[in-house]
Amino acid sequence: MATEGQSEGLVFHPMDQFKIQPLFGDGPIHWYTPTNATLWMGIAILCIIGLFVIGTRGRATIPSRIQSIAELGYGFVHKMVEDVTGKEGLKFFPYVFTLFCFIVFSNFLGLIPGALTTTSHIAVTGILAMAVFLTVTIFGFIKNGAHFLELFWVKSAPLPLRPVLALIEVISYFVRPVSHSIRLAGNMMAGHAVIKVFAAFAPLILMSGIGIAVTPLSILAIVAMYALEILVAFIQAYVFTILTCVYLKDALHPSH
């Protein structure tokens, strides 16, 4: 594959880090088998419990450090939901906060070397995005009835344009879950794969003379990519959450 033209010893397996494997033994993966995905989701849950339950058990008016982080996260998402969807949207706050917490912890835990990034899997982000899509659609119809369809009928546009716009709006509405899920998974996958590719160049110094130049560069590149990934890990969680809020706003106030 990509090793062609390189020294014989270099091996590129940038996607191997995303493999789902059973935790115990080597058997087939049934739906109930505990896998490394289970492990890392479990660690994410433990982190969430640690931060939001154990961290706040003091209920201090003057917060400890962990408690102030928990409050910061709460305030951040709460303000986001309130700003975008308005006061009515606050009933979705626990739901949105669940998504945010799961994504942000999975993203950051995935940055630990050797960890599996659960959010880099289409299966995971697809379910998250479909859940948002179904919530928005079902809630939109329950709350607004047929008026929800006005979302696709752009009243501010001139009449002849409206059918065309409606078509575009419908398509974009159904593409939402696709882009919503692939954005998150793709971002997480891309950065990790690039880091892995750079990492594969690192042992070149053991094999050939050119490695003296390449190895430090690749290590530097890994560090730079890692810093970028830390940023991306948070921004993608933020973007996923705020897009969720934007879609929820459509369900709450469908008219443009």
């Binding site: 692939i182 954005r183 971002n187 891309a190 794969a193 973007v239 705020i242």
Partner: peptide
């Protein structure tokens, strides 16, 4: 917030092309 939404939409298309490559 609008800035990040805009960046996310623009970036998603690049991610799609990356996905096609992968």
């Amino acid at each position: 917030a609008t800035l990040f939404i805009g960046i996310a939409f623009a970036e998603a298309l690049g991610i799609f092309s990356f996905l096609v490559a992968l």
